[in-house]
Amino acid sequence: MSTLVKPLTPSAQGPAPAGPWRAWLAGPGVRYLLLLLPALMVVAFVVYPTVATVIHSFYRLDPVGRVTGFAGVANYRMLFAEPVFLQVLRNTAIYAVASVVLSIALAFGMAMLLSGKVFVNRLLLLGIFSPTVMPTIAAANIWLYFLAPQLGLFTHLLGDFGIKNANLLGEPNTALGALVALFVWKYAPYFTLFLMAGLQAIPQNVRDALRTEDPHGWHSLRKVVLPIMAPMLAFVITLAVIYAMETVDPVYVMTQGGPANGTNLVMFYLYQLGFSYYSWGPAAALSGLLLGGLSSLSALSLIALERRSFHWA
């Protein structure tokens, strides 16, 4: 068999492997086998629970989680009939908007300051990014110490400014503010990384041109920098919204949703519905709503990413 163009398979490049074992290893079967285990994991731990949750949201469930009958939209109705849930939605909305806006505004500012610098101090970078790599549970515990009445560092600092015996986690408004601060502290550096990468995509000569042409910098930001950054911003905002919506560990560690449900966020409420009240039906309904909401947001941002990319001239 003489052929000039060799197919790019192992057997064409050398002698075929001897023995049935080797032949089988080189064949296509093994690839699918290797794929099987991860695929099974995804089905067992992602696909099945997701589908089961959505189905369960339309059924009555007993406290152990067994189906006792078809419920229609009763679970959803029950969810919205509960005044605490409406408060949770309000808390979550305030928390998410404040966290996303503040963290991204700060990240954008830091990215503008840090990008374009040929040499950024490594220690400074390490300092800025250390909150991001810290597990939220650990970070929440540190913040708990900062904010502890009487002995916390932050409480002491407030005392120096004349605010004595502050108990920030003891008031609904300031407690929610503390959670927002923790989010910004932890995620703003992470978003900075993405936005720095986005800014780096603007060629040096375009920045130079902007510097010679724009007296205030404002026009450059609005007309050139922001539009070019739009896809990256859409991506980071999506990420931030998802992170804000799934916030549960600092709530668990720092406030347990209190005081007076003032820091009860949707993911913590979901946990309570299921594991404290055993209301599996409404819990499934809430999961379904979150799934639908966050998936559509991701889809929208993907579309935005696709449509707003530029070809550099």
Binding site: N205, V206, V224, I228, F310, A313
Partner: peptide, 8 residues
């Protein structure tokens, strides 16, 4: 390399 603004 011209430095034109690609989005405008």
């Amino acid at each position: 390399s011209y430095a034109l603004y690609p989005n405008l």
